[in-house]
Design a protein around this nucleic acid. Structure first.
Length: 467
RNA sequence: GGACAGGUGGCCGAGCGGCUGAAGGCGCCGGUUUGCUAAACCGGUAUACGGGAUACCGUCUCGUAUCGCGGGUUCAAAUCCCGCCCUGUCCGCCA
């Protein structure tokens, strides 16, 4: 959510931001509602003040009269009764007016709130303009020695690549048929060394963040209340992407949602809290199962491990002071962790500065990381795929957008409460990361060499498959 | 799942129709005292929104709302009524 005060003071900033993000927001209506809401509130408060004043004045009198009435004889009773009614009628006209205003407010407020939620976080000034992912700008790329994604796989390795689909089939790492049998399309079963490699990647990345990057390990719920989804900004617009547990339909309890990322649990931790500035920056890391309905993606990447309904992800979040420079510094640091991990796994990757049209509602800045996946893309002249970049990570800066929605504040040295700045970044998401891992490290004989950092997590094994 | 108890400020805890944004205590901050520390004593100590003042970003002031959440009764609700959510204890079930 944006700051309604900031919008009032400088609406142009948000209008321009929405324009750059290619998001349509009825700003005139928002302004009108905002004005109406404030007008009603001011009037209502004045009325209530008057009501309270009168109440204080006549309250004790009414008490006395009622006491007198009890012991009064029939003759005095009528007089007292009239006096009492006269007192009680004093606030009546105010009450009617107040009720009218309340009705008006009840009509305006929800619309105001809904529109306010629909205003996107303006992109940072240095984020390039663009309509969609096609306009994202490559920042830099890295490849391990001896592999150049600009050249065909066979030119690098001396043989044509198998796709990860072929590799997991031939090496017995994934059973798609049984996954689909049990749960339907986009489901899978990790089998044998496939499961082990999956766990190794997660565990390596998780340990890396804890042991070498100073993040605090956390295990958070993946089943959360609606407030968590709203607070983290995944709702209302991403509602159709989340699995919904309709517990209330059973006649008791409340509805719950399966989270699509550990970010929800990590950020929800301190919702509605005021934390001491000395605890900042919060640096949390979790590994959690992520659930995505992939609504609207029908027909896209239906095969393989790329787009699936359930996966596991190591996620990092930072909540730092409301300071642009500090937020940018953490963005770099978090990306550095990712690059260190990818380099240690010898996976070619590139960083993309996402353009304004690709940022989504809550980000002011986002950098995607794509790994080179030799088995993706169109087939070349030799009938083998030519390879393509595939998104594996995403690093976002949210400014105070998310903390404001979550009502997550800190108290600064001057004693003021301030909404923190939030960031989040994938550390590793698996099994998607297994695609480049298997495809890049495949050998001519069909086996796959396990990158050194994962071997301790694989019982010391150096390769999967024949040798 | 069954039975009971209960949700009040950073924490503990009183209040059970008006004088209560809320006693008392703890904690925290400032001050006095003190060789230092401790103790004692005095003062202060919620958040949000809106108006005003001073201005220059820090205050001051007025108002409104908030005693789990929502609704109702009433001239007036922390206090009464209804619904919901949550927590605790016991029993049952169970990884």
């Amino acid at each position: 959510m944006i700051d309604p005060k900031a919008f009032r003071e400088d609406p142009q900033r948000f209008i321009e931001g929405a324009r750059r993000k290619r998001v349509l927001v009825p700003f005139e209506r928002l302004s009108a509602l905002d004005e109406a809401r404030r007008r009603i509130l001011t009037e209502l408060e004045a009325l209530r003040a008057e009501q309270n004043r009168i109440s204080k004045e006549i309250g004790p009198k009414i008490g006395k009269l009622k006491g007198a009435l009890k012991s009064a004889d029939a003759g005095a009773r009528a007089g007292l009764d009239a006096e009492l009614r006269a007192l009680e009628s004093q606030p009546q006209s105010l009450k009617a007016k107040a009720q009218a205003l309340e009705t008006e407010l009840a009509a305006v407020e929800p619309q105001w709130n809904e529109l306010l939620l629909s205003v996107p976080q303006p992109p940072a000034a240095d984020v390039p303009d663009g309509d969609d992912a096609g306009a994202n700008k490559e920042i830099r790329r890295w490849s391990p020695p001896g592999f150049d994604p600009a050249k065909p796989f066979s030119a690098n390795r001396g043989f044509g690549p198998k796709t990860h689909l072929e590799l997991v089939r031939d090496l017995g790492l994934v059973d798609f048929e049984r996954g689909v049998k049990m749960s339907g399309t986009r489901h899978y079963v990790l089998t044998g060394l496939g499961m082990r490699l999956h766990q190794a990647a997660l565990r390596y990345a998780f340990d890396f963040m804890i042991d070498r990057r100073g993040f605090t390990p956390m295990g958070v719920p993946v089943i959360v209340r609606e407030e968590c989804m709203l607070g983290t900004g995944f709702f209302p617009f991403g509602r159709e992407q989340a699995y919904h547990l309709e517990e209330s339909k059973r006649g008791s309890g409340h509805d719950l949602f399966l989270t699509g990322t550990g970010e929800v649990g990590l950020m929800g931790l301190h919702a509605d809290e005021i934390i001491d500035a000395s605890r900042l920056p919060l640096r949390y890391c979790t590994v959690s199962t992520c659930f995505r309905r992939e609504a609207g993606a029908a027909g896209k990447e239906t095969a393989g491990l790329y787009r699936i309904h359930q996966f596991d992800k190591v996620e990092q979040v930072v909540v730092c002071r409301a300071d642009d420079a500090e937020s940018r510094q953490w963005h770099k640091t978090m990306l550095e962790s990712v690059e260190m991990i990818l380099q240690s796994l010898e996976l070619p990757y590139r960083l993309l500065q996402c353009c304004t049209g690709d940022l989504g509602m809550k980000n002011e800045d986002m950098i995607d990381v794509e790994c080179w996946m030799p088995g993706r893309g169109d087939d070349g002249a030799d009938g083998k795929p030519t390879g393509a970049w595939g998104e594996t990570h995403s690093a976002s800066r949210l400014a105070d957008y998310q903390c404001r929605r979550l009502n997550l504040r800190y108290r600064d040295e001057k004693g003021r409460t301030v909404f923190g700045y939030a960031l989040n970044n994938t550390v590793i998401a698996s099994p998607r990361i297994l695609i480049p891992l298997l495809e890049i490290h495949q050998q001519k004989d069909g086996s796959v060499v396990i990158p050194a950092p994962l071997r301790p997590y694989m019982g010391g094994a150096e390769r999967i498959g024949a040798k």
